[in-house]
Amino acid sequence: MSTLELKSISKSYGKKQVLDNLNCTFEKGVYGLLGPNGAGKTTLISIIVNILNADSGEVLFGGKPVKVLGSDYYDDIGYLPQYPHFYSNYTAQEFLEYIAVIKGLTKKKAKQRIDELFEFVNLQDDKNKKVGAYSGGMRQRLGIAQALINNPEILILDEPTAGLDPKERIRFRNLISRISEDKTVILATHIVTDVESIARDVILLNKGKIICNDTPENLIESINGRVWSFEIPHNEIEDVLSRYIVSNVQYSGDGFLIKTVGEKPCKSAQNVPATLEEVYLCYVSESGGEI
């Protein structure tokens, strides 16, 4: 299994620095690339999949720069873009056959692989339906199938669960978990729960910088003792929302039960266990991001 390595990646559009000296190594397992909108996730992914040039730094795969590997690099990556619609007038079967050709699979190998993948993503009964008639979740599963058709070592998913209902999101998550057994999966998202239970490492990105990169457990551990719960009357809600990093507001009969991240907000506040969502809020806010 070859590793993917980012070395001092920087990128700017005009005067705006989008990525600033990023260094990171990806091995087997799921990597959650978290960050608010505009953090630089899609730019980073575009550089990793070699459709965008970095201003400086390089992406190495198996120790070799991907620029040197050329089209051979694409044998080892599968990519699911953000909000894919694919060809609505194709059936799923036709679509995967086309992708197989584009990815250079032989006819025989393509047929076998397509059958396997339809079963894997549980679309075997819908493979003759037009892609345009697919639901969002089915389309994302088809997207996974197209990304996996060349059996790549690295799977890159850009906001794959955006717009999916909870059932489809869980189904999708389970699918990614299964894939990650023998592959590197880089999952870019701003939905923390997508990566909470399946990521081996979470990379938090804000304003073009990696603000933390660790296992979810370690990240949660790192903010333990900084998450608070307390009750407030109805009339104080606006004040609390503006003063603290609020991770949850729950209505209770007499007022609101508030969860905040950071310094102890009041004497009555109780320390409670942290979640990855609070890690995200804490680090993004500390790095100057808007919550």
């Binding site: 575009s46 999949v49 694409y74 894919p84 619609h85 694919f86 060809y87 584009i102 990815k103 060349n150």
Partner: peptide, 18 residues
């Protein structure tokens, strides 16, 4: 329009040959 351009660009035959 159907976001296939990036899929093509990240495929082995999706560039010059396509």
């Amino acid at each position: 329009e159907c976001d296939m351009d990036t899929v093509l660009l990240t495929s082995k035959n999706g560039r010059r040959k396509t």
